[in-house]
Design a protein around this nucleic acid. Sequence first.
DNA 1: GGGGGCGTTCGGGAAAACCGTATGCTGCTT
DNA 2: AAGCAGCATACGGTTTTCCCGAACGCCCCC
Lengths: 270, 270
Amino acid sequence: MRGFVAVAGAGTVTGAADRLGLAPASVSEQVRRLEDSLGVALFERTPQGMRLTEPGATLLARAQALLDHAEEVRRVVTGRRRRVRIGALEMLAAVKLPAVIRRLSERCPDLDVDVRALTRQDLLAEVTRGGLDAALLVDSGPAIGGLGFVPPPGLDFADVDEVRLFLVAAPGGDRDPLLVSAPGCSIRLAADQVFGAEVPRRELTSLATAREWTRQGLGRALLPDFVTEADLASGALVPLDLDAPVLAVRLVWQRGRESALRDVLYAMSV
Amino acid sequence: MRGFVAVAGAGTVTGAADRLGLAPASVSEQVRRLEDSLGVALFERTPQGMRLTEPGATLLARAQALLDHAEEVRRVVTGRRRRVRIGALEMLAAVKLPAVIRRLSERCPDLDVDVRALTRQDLLAEVTRGGLDAALLVDSGPAIGGLGFVPPPGLDFADVDEVRLFLVAAPGGDRDPLLVSAPGCSIRLAADQVFGAEVPRRELTSLATAREWTRQGLGRALLPDFVTEADLASGALVPLDLDAPVLAVRLVWQRGRESALRDVLYAMSV
DNA sequence: GGGGGCGTTCGGGAAAACCGTATGCTGCTT
DNA sequence: AAGCAGCATACGGTTTTCCCGAACGCCCCC
């Protein structure tokens, strides 16, 4: 069963065997045995790897929940505490997570929450691999990856908040260049989408640096609301006219694992 | 896992081994292995058998649901139809079940329903053994077995309807003896509770016979509403004064298996 | 005090899980 | 065109699991 899930996740028997710490031959046999037991072909064998058949996809969606169910029963009987591992972008971990964690600890005192700050693509990779139960990131559009780094399928999401972007500059400061953070940063991806490649820009190491440079009048920057709020109110920064997109704060998890994340989803959506 | 459930159900390793078609040694090893794996004692070993510990009871309540979940996944992936096995007392199968079956087939066209008519004690035994998913019987009181044949614990129930009892006789016919059906019949058990052992009685083979004899003036009988309705309306039988108890039409199932019976419970409670 | 119920331990045999290797396949590279 | 890399899988071996029958210790009751 776990072998099947690993193969479906990795797309290849070899990759699944690596994750499970088994030999490829063993994993292959596990899958064959499961298919024999069910009397249904779960994968289509291609030279590039294993692709799920339609019944295979049906099983995958339910297998996650079944494994979670079994693990939950083990946990309750042994009396161990629950533990969820949440990842988030650094800036979201700092700004958005504390309220969620507080709600979770109030509602579920028996729940331990691990938080890790990772980059956008590491978050999606870890959720896919199962190293994280859920990840909080910034995205746009009707599907995961509107801002880039589209992950392999099998992930589901819910938008729990939104982030408004403001194009800002210091009053009397320079308008150019466009100050952007490092590639891979979600806000940087949004800036790339809004301005294209033709605008003069200077790449900095982080969003905090971009904000600081902007305040010192070294250019303009596209910054999220929670970073610019204070400066806009005090007049340290002024908004420039721009129809900037509204981004979503998006919680991402493996499809079918909702039951294990019920409390997290609830705490997020309040 | 199934070994554990069987032992919990049978109360003894030997009995569980019989049900599973295994040697007692094998079942004993299964339980020991599960306990090792969980790091928790699931049973208290007594000279009379195995009694669940508190974590064991916790597991049992969830194990049923987990096994049902696994079976449900198998069923969905293989595309087989759902199947529930319902047992009922003969008289209830005839009178109360048709409406339920019709509602079930309308709401769940993918559901096959098997119906078996059994005696009161066979119903409870089969549900406990797992040979039936649920049973419909007549009972009274706040727990299963108010009418007798208290089963081993682990069953849960819901009252879905009620049955009123009338003490009836033919107009101008004899009042004595009390005509009762065979021992084991639920209505007979109710009659025993109401009248005690001191009343002159004649034992007949079935409820239908008791009704017929009563109509022919050979005595009085305690009969359920759905049997006497027509005769009372037509005057073929008249009610005698008696504060007869109201019995419950009771659906009984193994505790923890509610998820597998969701649709049945719903069709019953409408 | 012995018989019958119980669960467990023991040794052995069958089955399953897993491994390392070898093989056939495809797509890409040289 | 030949070779190589990546893939899934068939094969033979070893380790672990599963199951059995028999034997043992325990308790209760006759």
